[in-house]
Computed example of a mutant assay.
Amino acid sequence: MSDPIDRLLDAAESGKSIIKNRDILHFTYIPNTIQHRNSEQEQVTQSLLPILKHSRPSNLLVYGKPGTGKTLVVKKVLNKIQERVEKSKFPIKLIYANSKEETTLYGLLVSFGRQLGMNDKELPGTGLAISEVFKRILNNIDESKINAIFVIDEIDYLAQLVSKTGKDILYQLTRANERLKQGSLTLVGISNDLTFKEKLDPRVISSLGEEEVVFTNYNVEQIKKILEERIDEAFIPNSVEDPALNLCAALAGGEHGDARRAIDLIRVAGEIAERQQSEKVSQDHVREASLKIEENKEETSLKSYPLHEKLVILAIMKAGGSSTGEIYSSYKGLCKIVGRDELTQRRITQMLSEIELSGIISGRLIHQGIHGRTKKYKLTISSEMIKKTFKDDLTLQDII
Score class of each variant (00 low, 15 high):
residue 112 F to C: 10
residue 41 Q to W: 03
residue 196 F to L: 07
residue 144 S to H: 07
residue 18 I to S: 00
residue 386 I to V: 14
residue 21 N to M: 06
residue 7 R to M: 07
residue 27 F to M: 12
residue 285 H to Y: 03
residue 320 G to D: 15
residue 343 L to N: 07
residue 336 K to D: 14
residue 127 G to R: 02
residue 246 N to A: 08
residue 88 S to L: 15
residue 206 S to N: 08
residue 297 K to H: 10
residue 227 L to C: 05
residue 263 I to D: 04
residue 283 Q to D: 14
residue 81 I to M: 13
residue 373 R to G: 01
residue 283 Q to L: 09
residue 359 G to F: 09
residue 87 K to C: 09
residue 174 T to C: 08
residue 275 R to N: 11
residue 69 G to H: 14
residue 179 R to C: 05
residue 343 L to D: 13
residue 2 S to W: 02
residue 67 G to N: 11
residue 267 R to L: 07
residue 309 E to G: 06
residue 258 D to T: 02
residue 65 K to T: 15
residue 395 T to E: 09
residue 387 K to H: 13
residue 161 L to Q: 14
residue 100 K to P: 02
residue 128 L to A: 05
residue 123 L to E: 04
residue 165 T to W: 08
residue 351 M to A: 10
residue 67 G to E: 08
residue 139 N to Q: 15
residue 159 A to Y: 02
residue 96 Y to N: 01
residue 182 Q to D: 07
residue 72 L to S: 10
residue 166 G to F: 09
residue 4 P to K: 03
residue 368 Q to H: 03
residue 342 E to V: 08
residue 39 S to W: 00
residue 344 T to Y: 12
residue 47 S to Q: 02
residue 376 K to G: 00
residue 332 K to W: 01
residue 367 H to M: 03
residue 39 S to V: 09
residue 242 D to I: 15
residue 62 V to C: 03
residue 44 V to Y: 12
residue 202 P to Q: 06
residue 394 L to M: 11
residue 47 S to T: 06
residue 32 N to Y: 11
residue 33 T to E: 15
residue 113 G to T: 10
residue 361 I to G: 03
residue 35 Q to C: 10
residue 71 T to K: 13
residue 305 Y to E: 04
residue 355 I to H: 08
residue 289 A to I: 06
residue 227 L to Y: 12
residue 265 L to E: 05
residue 115 Q to Y: 02
residue 318 K to H: 13
residue 300 T to F: 11
residue 218 Y to N: 03
residue 228 E to H: 08
residue 324 T to Q: 15
residue 356 E to N: 15
residue 166 G to Q: 09
residue 263 I to V: 15
residue 83 E to M: 06
residue 373 R to L: 00
residue 183 G to L: 04
residue 3 D to Y: 01
residue 346 R to T: 12
residue 373 R to D: 02
residue 398 D to F: 00
residue 214 V to P: 00
residue 170 L to Q: 11
residue 8 L to A: 09
residue 385 M to W: 08
residue 124 P to V: 02
residue 325 G to I: 01
residue 105 L to I: 15
residue 151 V to M: 04
residue 189 G to C: 04
residue 316 I to L: 13
residue 165 T to Q: 01
residue 10 D to Q: 13
residue 214 V to N: 02
residue 175 R to V: 01
residue 350 Q to P: 00
residue 11 A to P: 00
residue 287 R to A: 05
residue 45 T to Y: 12
residue 327 I to N: 01
residue 80 K to A: 10
residue 324 T to Y: 07
residue 367 H to F: 06
residue 85 V to H: 01
residue 262 A to L: 07
residue 178 E to L: 11
residue 181 K to E: 14
residue 386 I to M: 15
residue 24 I to C: 08
residue 294 E to H: 05
residue 363 G to A: 11
residue 233 E to F: 06
residue 54 H to S: 15
residue 346 R to E: 12
residue 102 E to S: 09
residue 381 I to N: 10
residue 22 R to L: 14
residue 346 R to S: 12
residue 191 S to W: 04
residue 10 D to T: 07
residue 145 K to I: 04
residue 347 R to L: 10
residue 380 T to W: 04
